[in-house]
Amino acid sequence: MASLDAPPVGTPTIRWRVPEMHPEGRKFVFIAGALAMLGYWWFGWFAFWPLAGLTLWVALFFRDPVRVTPQGDGLIIAPADGLITMIERVPVPRELAGENGLGDAPLVRVSIFMSVFDVHINRAPIAGTIRQVVYISGKFVNASLDKASEDNERQHIVVEGRPDADGNARRIGFTQIAGQLARRIVPFVKPGDMVAAGQRIGLIRFGSRVDVYLPDDIAPQVALGQRSVAGETVLGRAGASAATGIAQ
């Protein structure tokens, strides 16, 4: 006979757990930890505690929490954690334009600004095949500024979804943009790779932005000032009404 305290059959037991740290962060945690020990050795507790706090922050920066990605046709999932700072129709970057990319007509761009306190693991907005990965070196101005999309170090990615019944495949382009503190964009994928929606595709070190370009049949489902969660927030949806006005 089942215990009265036992959960109903089929009910999962959910427990909170500390997010794991991505392997990319291990060397930085080691360096910060070594500095903390050296600070203690040379200057005592006065130097140790600030450097120990820095070590903890570095570990938290590279945290890689588990995410549950919504499933459904026509969904575009947020590729980054952060603040929705811009939703506007703009020309497509030349690296993403053309018949092998997103075309030449202006598209709606949704910009997600990641502070140094956000999770910086980026995820695929749709399931499909990576068609383009284009890296461009550049400056490191504030990633929240509009000109960062043209001036900063950045990486453009195009994902082509699975063909529908008519053989048409939707393409989603997005751009990882380095910020003032970010000094490297780390890719996890290359052209030809198959990805699932919400799969980890890269990270940007230390504060940055991600721009997502939505096709005309996709309506934004987020509003300015909203916070998105990579791999979970529905950024856009086919056949839906837009959640907010779009700057032209």
Rank of each mutant, 00 (worst) to 15 (best):
D216C: 09
F28C: 02
A78T: 06
P79W: 13
V212T: 09
A240V: 13
R26A: 15
F46Y: 09
P191C: 03
M37H: 01
Y213D: 14
R67S: 08
W45N: 03
D81N: 09
P215N: 11
P187I: 01
G128T: 11
I172L: 05
E232A: 07
D216P: 05
R184C: 05
G10C: 12
A105F: 07
V133D: 03
S111N: 07
G207L: 10
P91E: 01
D211P: 00
D193M: 05
G74Q: 12
R170V: 12
F28S: 04
A32R: 05
V90E: 10
R209Q: 07
M114S: 05
F48L: 06
S3N: 14
I185R: 04
I204N: 02
L214H: 12
R205C: 08
P19K: 01
L102E: 03
R205V: 07
E88C: 08
L4K: 15
P125L: 00
P220R: 03
F46S: 15
W42K: 06
I14R: 06
Q226E: 15
G179W: 03
R209A: 04
F140D: 09
M21R: 02
N152G: 05
P79E: 14
I87G: 03
M194Q: 15
E150V: 07
T13S: 13
H156R: 09
P187G: 10
N152E: 14
L35E: 02
F140G: 00
A243G: 02
M37R: 10
G138L: 07
Q176V: 02
F113T: 06
D104F: 12
W42N: 00
A196T: 15
Q155E: 10
L38R: 00
L60R: 14
L214D: 13
S3R: 15
P8R: 00
F140L: 04
P50W: 00
E150K: 03
G98E: 02
G236W: 02
F61H: 05
E232I: 01
G44H: 01
G202P: 01
V92P: 14
R171M: 08
S241E: 11
R67C: 05
V210M: 06
R89P: 13
P125W: 01
V119R: 03
M194G: 12
I136R: 04
A178Q: 00
R162N: 06
Q176C: 07
A238S: 10
P106K: 03
A2I: 15
K27Q: 11
D73C: 08
A165N: 14
P7A: 04
V58H: 13
E160G: 00
S115Y: 11
F174K: 10
S111L: 00
A196C: 03
V66L: 08
T55W: 12
D5W: 06
F113C: 03
R200C: 10
P79I: 03
S115C: 07
I218Q: 14
I31T: 08
R237S: 00
V133H: 09
F174S: 02
D164R: 01
W49D: 04
I172N: 06
T11L: 14
P19A: 06
D211K: 05
N152H: 05
A143D: 13
